[in-house]
């Protein structure tokens, strides 16, 4: 494979990963908020969320492998694993490594959700709100395509849709219909001093 082709693949797979990951985040939020219409059942949201997440990993693998084996950058495999170990664009590549590892933790815990239990799984899943912005900053900071129009449009679209979904979630509050009644009841029976 020629160096140029590798380089284009790295950038292309990176851009696709950004789009997919943003889609995964948006779908995750829609699923937590129980968004549903007659033609769009809830299992479609969660199923798509899951499958797009797995697909994101495939494109990220492509993105990382092509970047590492590209002889021009001499990144080495360590860069893919240890954050900030690259001499080349140290900060920005380091962020990419962190975002990838967070995502890996999220996917792996999801695959073994039945074993680790719902509470632990959910705690790890909140890391999505760290992984996604770090990935976006990595993309912007690394900067090969930052100036090009297609990249700007894509990034704005991704950031915009995730921001809208997050904003919607914050405004809606908990989607568990029992949440407020439950905490009210618990507050009413708060522990009294024992004698």
């Amino acid at each position: 494979m020629s160096t140029t082709l590798l380089w284009y693949t790295t950038r292309g797979a990176g851009a696709v990963s950004m789009v997919l990951l943003s889609g995964v985040v948006v779908l995750g939020i829609l699923s937590a908020l129980r968004v549903q219409t007659a033609g769009w059942p809830r299992f479609l949201t969660t199923g798509l969320h899951r499958n797009l997440a797995l697909m994101t990993l495939v494109f990220l693998a492509l993105h990382i492998v092509t970047a590492v084996i590209d002889p021009f950058t001499h990144l080495g495999w360590l860069t893919a694993v240890v954050p900030f170990s690259s001499y080349y664009r140290t900060i920005w590549l380091g962020l990419g490594t962190i975002a990838f590892e967070l995502l890996l933790a999220i996917v792996v815990t999801s695959l073994i959700r039945g074993f680790i239990g719902h509470v632990a799984w959910r705690l790890v899943h909140w890391l999505a709100y760290a992984s996604w912005p770090i990935a976006i900053i990595h993309g912007i900071g690394t900067g090969t395509d930052t100036q090009s129009a297609w990249s700007i449009v894509l990034t704005i679209a991704c950031v915009g849709s995730v921001a809208a979904a997050v904003g919607y979630r914050v405004l809606r509050g908990s989607s568990d219909p029992l949440a407020s009644a439950r905490s009210e009841f618990r507050a009413g029976i708060a522990r009294r001093p024992e004698q």
């Binding site: 129980r34 549903q36 059942p41 809830r42 299992f43 969660t46 719902h118 568990d176 219909p177 029992l178």
Partner: peptide
Amino acid sequence: KCDGRGLCAEL
């Protein structure tokens, strides 16, 4: 645990 997401009834 169940909070009535309803996926089970769809599936």
